[in-house]
């Protein structure tokens, strides 16, 4: 079992709703995931713009979560900080998504499900694809970033993982 296989196995969890959810719900979820996804991207951009932004955030959190890494001798302190920052990102993603889901579920009316089905099929398919990527990719990104914690091998997607986040840099 490798991380590559795990990423493929979990894909149906994100894929099944695309076929079952109604169009209005797809949009509500898409808008919510866009908020969560934007937060993740914003944190990455902030890390690029401001030098050592991730490290500074993680340093502040480390005293509270440092116990988790006590037995880990393989990871450097900077890699531990990076992993903590990944947890911050996934937490921001989940909170952003949940809060905006509650908001959009209240304010978004949508279209009559019986009628909208017949029209805008391309647009509906587009939103489904968007929803899949903006929900599945942050989770994959998170698992790739924290793979240093696990003894699981990277598998056949190792070059891609190293491109996204290289352990031991």
């Amino acid at each position: 079992m490798s991380l590559s296989i795990i990423l493929l196995i979990i894909a149906p969890i994100f894929g099944i709703p695309l076929f079952l959810l109604p169009d209005n719900k797809i949009r509500i979820f898409s808008f919510s995931f866009i908020t969560g996804f934007s937060l993740v991207v914003a944190l990455i951009v902030l890390d690029i713009i401001y030098n050592q932004f991730a490290i500074r955030i993680a340093k502040g959190i480390y005293p509270a979560v440092g116990w988790f890494f006590n037995n880990n001798k393989e990871l450097s302190i900077n890699e531990k900080y990076r992993i903590i920052f990944s947890f911050v990102q996934i937490l921001a993603f989940l909170l952003g998504t949940i809060i905006s889901y509650v908001t959009f579920n209240t304010i978004y009316i949508g279209k009559n499900p019986s009628i909208s089905k017949k029209n805008n099929q391309v647009l509906n398919a587009f939103w489904r694809v968007i929803m899949f990527f903006i929900s599945y990719l942050p989770v994959c990104y998170f698992l790739i970033c924290i793979r240093g914690l696990s003894s699981l091998s990277d598998g056949f997607m190792k070059p891609l993982f190293n491109l996204i986040y290289y352990i031991g840099a």
Partner: peptide, 13 residues
Amino acid sequence: YSYRARIYEPINY
């Protein structure tokens, strides 16, 4: 829950 959301969408909408 996706299937339920589909059934209940007319009422939720």
